[in-house]
Simulated scan of single mutants.
Amino acid sequence: MDHAHHDINSVPAAPMHGDHGDHGDCDSPCADMGHSHAMVFHANVCQEILFNGWLTTTALQLFGSCVAIFVAGVLYEALKYYREALHVRATSATGDSTVNIAKNECGSNGNCTGPSVVKYSMWSGGHVVQTAMHVVQATASYVLMLVFMTYNVWLCLALVLGLGLGYFIFGWRKNTVIDANEHCQ
């Protein structure tokens, strides 16, 4: 049986991603940018970030994106702190920054009945707010993880520095070092 007519070199290559139409001006620095996303760190200016419309083609655009991601990192740390502060306020008997699950109940005449346990109910306003904020925090966490997974050194550096500054600003006020609600660590 002759298999010569099945020579792999004679078969025209099919397009990998189909016809995407015009990618813009051929003089663009990103005109030859492929759609492959190699999983290696790189410092390319041409970078697609999270969405088809968020494409950097100049160093200034990449810098602006880095600033936006830096601010997002700071705001993420602020959200984590704010959630904890709301929880502390809801469960604290004294209103200070310590969590008191048990507190003394004292009546208007000064008679204390002893410790009681502060409980959230499933339908309490505080729990509903905490749930909504948890959803926002989880979403933000995964979106920031996807930014890091672009493997662009500049975007990764901006994110790490933003998270670092956010922790510096808000982390010293936290009551615990271990965050059980952290999604990316």
Rank of each mutant, 00 (worst) to 15 (best):
A90E: 07
H23P: 14
G24K: 09
A78Y: 13
A85R: 15
Q47F: 00
A158K: 08
D179G: 00
G114L: 05
D32Y: 04
G164R: 04
A38L: 12
V71T: 03
I69G: 00
G107N: 15
M39E: 13
C112S: 13
V143H: 04
I178K: 12
E84I: 06
S92F: 01
S141C: 10
S108V: 10
W154T: 01
G110I: 07
D7M: 06
Y76Q: 14
Y151F: 15
D7S: 13
S141K: 01
V11H: 14
S121D: 10
P29M: 07
S65T: 14
A85L: 10
Q47H: 02
M1A: 13
N9Q: 11
M39W: 04
L86N: 13
V99C: 03
D32I: 03
T58A: 03
S97H: 10
G110L: 06
A85F: 13
A38F: 07
A140G: 15
T56V: 05
V153F: 13
V99E: 06
L144K: 07
N109V: 03
R173E: 08
W172I: 09
V153T: 14
Y76E: 09
T150M: 07
D25F: 03
T91C: 05
R89P: 01
V45S: 04
H3N: 12
V118W: 00
A102L: 15
L60Q: 13
A140P: 01
Y82D: 01
M1R: 10
D7V: 03
G73K: 09
F63G: 06
D25A: 13
F63L: 15
H23F: 09
M122Q: 09
G164N: 08
V88P: 01
S36W: 09
A78H: 08
G125Y: 06
L161Q: 06
V153Y: 07
T94C: 02
A85P: 00
D2H: 06
V177W: 11
Q61V: 01
W154P: 00
K103Y: 14
N52S: 13
H127G: 00
V128I: 15
L144T: 06
I49K: 03
H5K: 15
S116M: 09
W54H: 04
L157N: 03
V129Y: 02
V117G: 00
N109T: 13
G110D: 05
A90C: 01
R89Y: 02
V118T: 08
K174A: 12
K80T: 14
